[in-house]
Amino acid sequence: MVVGEQKPLEEILEMIEPYDRLILAGCKGCVAVCAAGGEREVRFLASAIKTARKAQGREIEIREVTLERQCDPEYVEQIRPFVGQYQAILSLACGVGVQFMAEHYRQIPALPGLNTTFVGGAERQGVWVERCQCCGQCVLHLTGGICPITRCSKSLLNGPCGGSSNGRCEIDPEVPCGWQLILDRLKELGQLERYLEIIPPKDWSLSRDGGPRKVQREDLMR
C-alpha cells in the first residue's frame, strides 16, 4: 500500500487558515489501511480543526466525506454536486489523491493533509515499513525476494558495502543491512552462488529518473 502520515496539525491549521468552508476528503484505499486518511481519521481531524477554530473564536464549516478511492476519476467526481459551496479541499489521500482533486476541481485549491511517505506494508499493528521504490524494473528474482534498491540505503546491486556491521546498516543500527538480508535469504534458498554474478548497472530510465511514467493497457482502454 501507499503509506502516508498525517502532517503536523500546526501545519494543517496554517494551510487552511484563509478558509472558513472546507471539504475534508478521506480515502478508503491505502491511507485508510495505514490509519492516516480513512473515515476515522477524517472524523478525528475534522473535530480537531473545529475545536481549534472555535477556540480562536472563528468557526469553520467542514464537509466530511470519505471516498472509495481518490485515485479514480469516478470516485473523485462524487463530490462535484457540492464542491462549489466550499473554498478548499483538504485531502487526506496520498499525493495522488490530492492531485486528482486538483485536476478535477480547478476553481478551489486542493491541500495535502498527509505526507505521502512510501510504498510498504504493516510490519505489525501500528508499524509500517518501506518495501518498494517503484523502480520500474523489478530485480527481486535475483536477490532472494528482498529489494536491494529499497532495503540497501545505497541501493547497491552488488552489496554489501563496507559499512555492514552485525547485520546492521551504517546509517543507523536500527536499520537492518539489506544485503545481509539478501545473503541470508539466498543461503536459505541454496542460491548463494548467485552472489558471484555481477549485477550490471540498472536502467534507471524506467524509474522516476526517466520522467513521469505511464502504464497503458490497450485491451482495457475505451
Partner: peptide, 21 residues
C-alpha cells in the same frame, strides 16, 4: 559513505551505479 552521517544529511544521494559497476 552514506550522507546521513556526513555534514549535509539533507542532500539527495545518487548511487546510480555501485563501486563494482
Amino acid at each position: 559513505d552514506h550522507q546521513k552521517a556526513g555534514d549535509h544529511p539533507q542532500a539527495k544521494n545518487v548511487f546510480d551505479i555501485d563501486s563494482i559497476q
